[in-house]
Amino acid sequence: MSTLPQPSADAREHSAHLREVIQEHIIAAGGSLPFWKFMELALYAPGLGYYSAGAHKFGRAGDFITAPERSPLFAACVATAVAPALRQAGKGAVFLELGGGSGAFAEECLLALQAQDMLPARYAILEPSADLRQRQRERLQARLSPELLARVEWLDGPLAEPWNGVLFANEVIDALPASRFALRAGTVLEEHVALDGEGRFARTDKPADALLAAAVDHLQRRLPAPLPDGYRSEVLVQLPYWMQAVAGGLRDGALLFIDYGHARDEYYQPERDDGTLRAFRRHHVDNDVFAWPGLQDITASVDFTAVAEACVGAGFEFSGYCSQASFLLGNGLQTHLQAAEAQAADDIARHNLRQQVKHLTLPSEMGERFQAIGFQRGVELDAAFLLGDLSHRL
């Protein structure tokens, strides 16, 4: 049983409202929804979903802390990694960030790129949440110079017109609505969400459609051994289409993704027979993804082999794949730490900086659980992956 305190009365009312909305969708659909649709509503239902409503998600007061909130050194290393690609992309280069979070990454990345004399002509943030967009805007208005702020814009959708530059996403792919599948007697089934006799959410399995069945068959054919009967997990059926959509009109440029996950062989291990799905609330992991719709993040680990397939399929060349620790260390983490320590006010501030580095790089923290993967077309991102190459695992 969870030891987390109960949400406030207002939060419980909010969650109950979203629960009713999802129940109505289930009834209207004939008694069940594919899990991916449940996840989409729980996270993104307008005004009610976890990422659409007004509660704090990021930082110590929220439900989880991402790398940009951990330390400004994270964004400084990403800026170092992508600076050559921005230079090669030319005078009108765009930096496109998917999902701007609290705005911490945009702030520190722009400052780091300014220090390297490699500012993009435009810094675009594709943020579907109106609430998060407003918080990002307020943060950047308060902390950036007018010169830097003038380069920032918010998008309602991908850049459709031709553009050159860099697309970056940190902890975005894990929040894409995932399909859940089960294997039974050689048949692929799709996990749905139905209602039990008391109106509570419950799992049920239905025959998979052709698209999901093909996706599961594709991944199974590339595993060293067949998955066992009764195996259940996730797959991002829509990932190739999503990737082509978010890249939009990108001609010459680089793609960089950092997230938690595994290469395919490690993701679909026989013993991981219920997948990687979980919820986050108040810095605690909860396996009950039905518990508090709208109040908890729902996430699944990333299959980085699928990311590689999707990006290469979209016409990009593979640049590299490594752990977050290797990526940061290979892109100037020690140099950025020394520079920050030289500017620190006192020993306490210097100690805090070193603690931040530990959080970002230790295997027991974010260093190994998170990985970085990159792709390029007409520019070079290869040098960002010179340390700790893991491409043999993909």
Rank of each mutant, 00 (worst) to 15 (best):
P5Q: 08
Q6N: 02
A9N: 09
R12Y: 08
L18D: 09
I22M: 01
S32K: 09
L43V: 03
P46L: 06
G49M: 06
D63V: 00
F64P: 01
I65Q: 01
A81R: 10
A81W: 05
A83Q: 14
A83Y: 12
K91S: 14
G92R: 05
F95I: 09
L96K: 06
G99F: 01
G103N: 05
A112M: 01
L119T: 03
S129C: 07
Q134Y: 04
R135D: 00
R135K: 11
Q141L: 10
Q141M: 09
L144M: 11
V152T: 14
G165F: 02
L167E: 06
A185V: 04
A185G: 04
V188E: 08
H192L: 05
L195W: 14
D196M: 06
R203C: 11
T204H: 07
P207A: 02
L212F: 15
A214Q: 06
L227I: 12
L239S: 05
P240D: 09
Q244C: 11
D265C: 15
F280L: 10
F290S: 03
F290L: 08
Q296G: 00
I298N: 11
F304D: 00
T305R: 02
T335L: 06
T335N: 14
H336G: 04
L337R: 10
Q338R: 06
R350C: 12
N352A: 13
P363Q: 06
S364P: 03
G367E: 13
G374V: 13
G378T: 07
A383F: 14
A384Q: 01
F385R: 04
G388L: 02
D389F: 06
L394F: 06
